[in-house]
Amino acid sequence: MSAPTLREDLVELQVDSVTLAFGGLRALDDVSFTVEPGTVHALIGPNGAGKSSCFNVISGVYRATSGRVRFGDTELTGQRPHRLAKLGIGRAFQNTALSPHSTVLDNVMLGRHALTTGGFLSCGLRLPWTVRQERRHTERAVEICEFLGLGKVLHAPVAALSYGAAKRTDVARALAIEPTLLLLDEPAAGMNAVETAEMAATIRDLRDALGISILLVEHDMNLVMGIADRVTVLDFGKRIADGTPSEVQADPEVVKAYLGSGSEDA
């Protein structure tokens, strides 16, 4: 892997003894791991292991029962969820959560929300600075779309896109907030082999071109092993392994968890 040019403003994400209980069920049980700056960190595990729950705790959708999450010096636990974008944490969703009737560009421009200002009156009156700001940020959004191979469908409604292109639009939108940490929930879910390979290449490009940290949840073992610098494995809410892809693959506990759950991915 080529050495990425790291951005100086990168900080680490620390998940520190996080427990999340839904009634009696412990979706997360004392889970800790650290996403080092500029790495691709994968969070894997069989169905129901708690991966999405972990994402939701990090992004403030769920409140941890105990433990905490820190992003550099900032405590994320207890932050209002919409503040995360401003802190530089971008998120793409497991099932793409785009506005289907809006265009690709319009969807991606939403990612600029936290980086821009202006309310009803300044937008409505098209004040000069609003117009300039809009133009500047549109240029950047277009650039991001082109990077993700969406240059030809900028003005197409998302509903008209292929599944793969919609997924990439979702990633483009998360990138549009100029994140230093990108959270990707199953970026290759529902993709065919070709699209999955493309997505893997994209993720690698992102890390190399932007030098940002990426935390990804993924079922597809091959994808994970190909691109991750580090892997954390969850099973029934517990962390059962944490290490480099080859270490984790050789871990008997991991093998057991994946075989035991009958998952085909291992």
């Binding site: 969820p81 503040r83 969703f93 785009l98 809006s102 990612g111 929300h113 998360a174 907030i177």
Partner: peptide, 18 residues
């Protein structure tokens, strides 16, 4: 854009800083 985002998916709108 923020209105449409809220209309279509509140979780996504929130993640984008709305």
């Amino acid at each position: 854009r923020s209105w449409r985002a809220v209309r279509d998916n509140e979780a996504a709108a929130t993640a984008m800083g709305v």
